[in-house]
Design a protein around this nucleic acid. Sequence first.
DNA 1: TGCACGATGAAC
DNA 2: TTCATCGTGCAC
Length: 183
Amino acid sequence: MQKLPRSFYDRDTVVVARELLGMHLVHWTDGVRRIGRIVEVEAYLGAQDLAAHSSKGVTPRNRVMFGPPGHAYVYFIYGMYHCMNVVTEREGHGAAVLLRGLEPVENLPGRSCGPGLLCRAMNIDRRLNGHDLLNDDFFIAKPDRTEPLRIVKRPRIGVDYAKHWAKRQLRFYLKGNPFVSKP
DNA sequence: TGCACGATGAAC
DNA sequence: TTCATCGTGCAC
């Protein structure tokens, strides 16, 4: 299991999003190591992307998104769920990849398809906002054994308000995987 | 200081 | 299709 380096995240967001598929998200919590295999993601390209939080400019809530790559952007939504993103590209760009589905690998209780349930299963909340994913307690790693992936691309979920950006195929998932939220 | 609404999920 | 539930951002 090889932790992903900073240089992995400091690249084009669509490339990072596609390459995150099949990677392992690891979180040590309550003395337990939880691991989920990333099977569904969405790319949010930056300030010009009307579906991205960063399109409104820097605010206290989204400032992590404008920070350096390789950090977790975690926010609270609908009064009851958390969503986790991975910050990409150079500092100031405001791009990130939303994690939407995990396949259980180790100590992953309950359902983990969909951004809200994923965070619940992995015990991810706002305390992890801004967390550097190069630390040892919360990171993403390339699994020892990998297999060829069949990647499907579709429009993103829940961003119909974003005009032509809503039609862009910036959602990626593993074909046929049962842990994808909306196949 | 008030209020509309959301990168959701579950029930009906 | 509706609802639970509350932080955020912006209007006033």
